[in-house]
Design a protein around this nucleic acid. Structure first.
Lengths: 200, 200
DNA sequence: CCCACCCTTCGTACGCCGTACGGAAACACC
DNA sequence: GGTGTTTCCGTACGGCGTACGAAGGGTGGG
């Protein structure tokens, strides 16, 4: 995971991993069948970092919010995770444990079984999708100056073709720096929708 | 895109692309700087397929629903797209055009500017996240028998460790085959949340 | 004390990849 | 026909994942 954190998925190779472990490359294959297996394990290890926290709040909304914001933090710590999520199913033990926590909280809140699946899937899709966009941006831009430059570039393109993107040119706030607030607002939208579906 | 559709991102190589075009490998580099550029173009091309539809319904909810379900369909047609989305920013012309449509619809519906960004981001995160999970599953399983087998396997693991996954063992419907319905339900959750935020 | 066995470690090699470099071929113009 | 230019691509380099099998060290029996 240190190697993944510092080099990303595409910079992660069996040779480099072996070098960092002071081992021959092929020695790794006594513990693991393919490189893909290593990535499977790394993915589940991150999910394990998320599943840790345990105590279930009285307020289901507070509990979910906390858990989800913690998911986002962990996924920021390991930027590569979002590209792995789009590549392999989340069926490791730690991934299932994480699912379990969400199911438990929502079931206890009184969500009918039919809606349960949908709610959990929606929350997961939201976190994964949102953080994926964030992480892509983070790993595309290299430094703050580059970031500002890229933003200006997009903004200029939009304004130069205001006929093609009328609404964007009029409404969009390209300078939006408040990612945390944006995440929270989207989460509240979803939680409101869920709340409306609690057993009447 | 034909090559990507049939071989996926990791099976897509400059050599294979050149072969399919009856050209030398290095000839490609007169039109494109790196392989990454080709993938950028492919991503934006898919976004172009989504942006196509134009007429804006009277009912903003119907319009958004239609556009989003069409997004999902297109992303099913090109399974590789979800892995690309987690890799590169959505700032090509077609991607911006797609964003523009969503901004336009929601602004016209009367969503206050502050919520506008959050709503669009939430909708995108949801579609991308949801379809990513679907596509991962689709490309992991090879045939219906394999799919059923894998589902049984996960279910068995959960039941065998019911102490670790109490809620999953109790509540989760592993056999859930109704992906379309689930997607629709999650979308309705979000749209309800957005509706609650329309200018009072 | 020696030998036979097994298990872990890893050196070598193969076929793939992206792409830098520079030569060959085709074409345009005088 | 000659000359400059543009398009095309053959070759080669360094990296990758991993199959194969040899080397080395530890363990037990005689």
């Amino acid at each position: 995971m240190e190697l993944l954190d510092s080099e990303g998925v595409e910079g992660f190779s069996m040779r480099r991993l072996a070098a960092r472990l002071r081992a021959g490359t092929m020695s790794l294959y006594s513990y693991v069948e393919t490189r893909e297996d290593v990535l499977d394990l790394a993915l589940d290890a991150v999910m394990g970092e998320i599943a840790l926290e345990d105590e279930d709040d009285v307020d289901w909304r507070a509990a979910l919010t906390r858990r989800i914001e913690q998911s986002r933090q962990v996924m920021h710590r390991h930027v590569w995770i979002t590209t792995l999520i789009g590549t392999r199913p989340l069926i490791g033990p730690a991934s299932l444990a994480r699912s379990d926590r969400f199911y438990a909280t929502l079931a206890r809140a009184g969500l009918p079984p039919l809606e349960l699946n949908a709610a959990v899937n929606t929350l997961f899709a939201y976190v994964h999708g949102f953080v994926a966009a964030e992480n892509v941006w983070r790993s595309t831009v290299t430094d703050p100056e580059h970031e500002a430059e890229l933003r200006r570039q997009v903004r200029r393109h939009v304004l130069a073709h205001a006929d093609r993107y009328p609404a964007l040119a009029r409404e969009a706030d390209m300078t939006d720096g408040d990612a945390d607030g944006g995440f929270r607002r989207g989460l509240d939208i979803i939680l409101d929708g869920i709340e409306a579906r609690l057993a009447a």
